[in-house]
Design a protein around this nucleic acid. Structure first.
Length: 269
DNA sequence: AAAGATTTCAACCGCGGTGCC
DNA sequence: TGGCACCGCGGTTGAAATCTT
């Protein structure tokens, strides 16, 4: 009856992935493609459950991922989409090529929430906060993060409260954020340096904009580094072309990369 | 220089939807 | 048709990195 369990969790490794594990997983998936995640760890020689492998691949090892902080343009998109969709991170991520739901969720919680609050905007409802962020209530009256979110309603609650008229004001206010001077690609909105298009196999498939991110200290953007494990094992994915093209739907981005000597078209969403 | 506090983000957990048996 | 596993999602955790004192 039914299927076999995904994993028995006995003797399986947890926690941070090692370079060797990354290497095994990437090597296996690039050779065999993605099919049954349950079978992947066994076939790849990993003491991990399929779920863990899927997570590692989708959030960190996929060659089409962008690395580094979200650009100003990407942040704006996230804010707009969050106002529209709430905490549906996967939906938001699907509109930001090369970004994962986990990455966007983390960035939202660590950066964007703070920025919005500083600007006096409730990150849950996207409306102006009643009290200025600079003059918080006394500690005993200050609800915990979770409480506040719960009080403001769940995702659906936020949707109910959200008024489309609020969106332009939110986006406009974002313009007031002072960012360090960086070179920004006019076509992609992403910061870049001349080194962006390095011959590194990993950076070559980052949406055509290179793996470069702006730094917070106002200096020239830094190259995004891929884990050493990837350098070791991605010799087979060399010379990926930084040529991305967009079809009718601006949110569907495809990219041609070279895999094992033949060209592959990958959907960056 | 060291210790403690804070921040970041990779990874895990648990749930719901879907599909297989 | 019911039970179960798979998959993907959102929330949470905790180790590592960074900052502050």
């Amino acid at each position: 009856m039914g299927r076999q369990p995904c994993c028995d969790k006995v003797g399986l490794k947890k926690g941070t992935w090692t370079a060797e594990e990354d290497q095994k997983l990437v090597s296996f998936l690039l050779t065999n493609g993605q099919y049954c995640w349950r079978a992947v760890p066994k076939l790849a020689g990993l003491l991990r459950c399929g779920k863990s492998c899927r997570l590692r691949w989708t959030n960190y090892l996929r060659p089409d991922l962008k690395r580094g902080l979200l650009s100003e343009e990407e942040e704006r998109t996230v804010i707009e989409l969050h106002a529209e969709l709430g905490n549906r991170w996967s939906k938001i991520a699907s509109r930001l090529p090369g970004r994962t739901d986990n990455e966007i969720k983390n960035h939202w919680n660590t950066h964007i929430k703070k920025k919005l609050r500083k600007m006096g905007i409730d990150p849950v409802t996207h409306k102006q906060l009643l009290q200025p962020a600079a003059s918080p209530r006394p500690a005993e009256q200050q609800p915990e993060e979770g409480e506040r979110d719960a009080a403001a309603g769940t995702v659906s609650g936020a949707e109910e409260e959200f008024c489309a008229d609020d969106l332009p004001s939110v986006v406009h206010l974002l313009d007031d954020i002072v960012l360090p001077p960086v070179a920004v690609s006019s076509s992609t909105g992403r910061a870049y340096s001349p080194e962006s298009f390095s011959s590194s196999s990993a950076t070559a498939s980052m949406g055509g904009s290179g793996g470069c991110v702006s730094s917070d200290d106002g200096e020239w953007p830094q190259m995004t580094e891929w884990p050493e494990s990837m350098w070791l094992d991605l010799d087979d994915v060399v010379t990926a072309q930084p040529t991305a093209w967009e079809l009718e739907d601006p949110f569907v981005t495809y990219q041609m990369i070279e895999l094992f000597g033949h060209e592959e078209i990958i959907n960056l969403n």
